[in-house]
Amino acid sequence: MPGPKDLDPSSSPRALLGAELRHAREKAGLSQEDLGQRLFVSGSFVGQLEAATRRMNPEIARLIDVALDTGDFFLRNCKAAAKSSYTEHFVEAVEAESSATEIRQYEPLLIPGLIQTPAYARAVFRAYQPTAPEEVIERKVAHRMERAHILEGATGPLFWTVMDEAVVRRVTGGHAVMAEALRHIIALIQGNRIIAQVLPFEAGAHASMEGSIKLMDFADAPTLLYFEGVGSGRLEDDPATVRYQRRTHEFLAAAALSPEKSLAMLEAMAQDYEHEAHP
């Protein structure tokens, strides 16, 4: 297993906790696999904690303190590292994507969060919470836009999305909002920031009829898979499950329109929405 990279302890509480775990483990003369056995988890899970791609929960922190004889250091500090602006089921996935080197995603119903516009995100959140105060919705939109910054600059991850045709045809927020949303995706494609394909209706039955897929690869930790449902979500790192879903994404990409034809379709749809918004 590749060794964990050196972390900047000042970057985040969770990075600090991961660096401290690595230091305490090595001081105890244990490998990641050795410590994993004492925690009843895999060695790769320990590596993910050290690389700050997985969140340390209180129960794991308590076991670490016992295994490494660190008093209550990890139990106390995991509470600080757990603070987040996101819902509990989503926070770990958000934090993982911020350190991913590659993200592959399939979405059957909506534009992936990382490439949404504020207006589109606002329409989505309002649909989720029709009676929420305006400040709650705006706070959610701001957090989503903050996430999108990982696609900026030379160090951003490779982002490859396959979107069902339903994504671009469902009028979310109105025609003007959809035109803007598609123009944003087009700009990201033309700026070589993302790879995007559309899975057309004419493709018929496909490999992910039951839901979305999100695969996140890292330089120094195993791949994570994120499953999301209505008000719920979970991360999975089982190698067999990850392999299966990676192959599923490959099947989807093969069945989808090519990147060039997908871009042409997005251009045509954006023009249609613009015409509907300004006849």
Rank of each mutant, 00 (worst) to 15 (best):
R76V: 02
P200H: 08
L235I: 12
Y86D: 02
A203P: 09
A52F: 03
K27G: 11
R122K: 10
I111C: 01
S44T: 11
L109W: 11
A254R: 05
T161Q: 13
C78M: 03
H206C: 01
F218A: 05
K214V: 13
P118G: 06
F218N: 05
A148Q: 13
L199E: 07
K27W: 07
I150G: 06
Q116E: 07
E135Q: 09
F73L: 03
T53V: 11
Y226E: 05
R147C: 01
E20I: 09
F227W: 12
R183E: 14
E95A: 15
A81R: 01
K83Q: 10
V242E: 02
P279E: 07
H149D: 15
G229P: 07
P112A: 03
P133D: 03
R22T: 08
F159P: 01
V198Q: 02
E274Q: 10
E180R: 04
R144P: 03
V168D: 02
V242F: 01
L252H: 09
S42C: 04
R169S: 05
I194G: 06
A255V: 10
F74N: 03
R193M: 10
I115Y: 08
A254S: 05
E33G: 15
R122H: 07
A121L: 02
E274V: 08
A61I: 00
A28G: 10
L257V: 12
H175Q: 12
I213T: 13
G233H: 09
E88Q: 10
G204L: 03
A205F: 09
F40C: 15
A80C: 13
V242W: 04
S258K: 04
A127Q: 07
E260W: 09
V136L: 12
P130E: 01
V171R: 13
V167R: 00
A207Y: 09
P4R: 15
E250I: 12
Q190D: 06
A268W: 14
L225K: 09
F227N: 11
A96F: 00
G173V: 01
F201V: 08
E59C: 13
S232I: 14
E102R: 14
S84I: 06
T248Y: 14
L35M: 08
V168I: 05
R144E: 04
Y226S: 03
L63S: 04
R147W: 07
T53S: 13
A96S: 01
M178P: 04
P108N: 10
A187G: 09
H23S: 14
V177I: 04
S258Y: 06
L225Y: 11
H89T: 06
V177G: 08
R147Q: 03
A240T: 06
R234V: 14
I60T: 14
L225V: 13
F74H: 03
V46G: 00
G71P: 02
P13W: 02
D217S: 13
E107H: 12
L49S: 03
M265C: 08
E135P: 08
G173P: 02
R144W: 06
A82W: 10
T117H: 00
E97H: 06
